[in-house]
Amino acid sequence: MAKQLLKLNFEFKAEQPMPIKESLHYGVVGSGDMEVIIEKKDLAGKAKFQVVTPVVGYDQVWEKVLGRFIDESNLGNISVEINDNNATPEVVSIRLRQALAELAAMKA
């Protein structure tokens, strides 16, 4: 079967969803790295993720990493799109947290 890019979709809901004020793009799709767009969207408090990645077989890891990000940040009503190029779960966590820090800096 020909190689193809995977599109993975996830959905989470924080207990008390926090909105974001502005949309943001962060990161560069280098080797072992990723980029993310976080957009404000009315999703009844939910956080929706779409991950585009060439790596097969890591759906559950993505679910854990992204779920933890929402648990920690409590973000809601956001649509998140990730372009991944073989980033490790640690790198994914760091990039998402950096994106969050950028969002905080934008508000300031």
Partner: peptide, 21 residues
């Protein structure tokens, strides 16, 4: 034509290669 416009390569996904916004 920044990342939010999502002008990505139409060719890379067919080859299973990562894309950038």
């Amino acid at each position: 034509a920044g990342p939010m416009d999502r002008l990505q390569s139409p060719h890379l996904p067919l080859l299973g290669e990562a894309v950038e916004f």
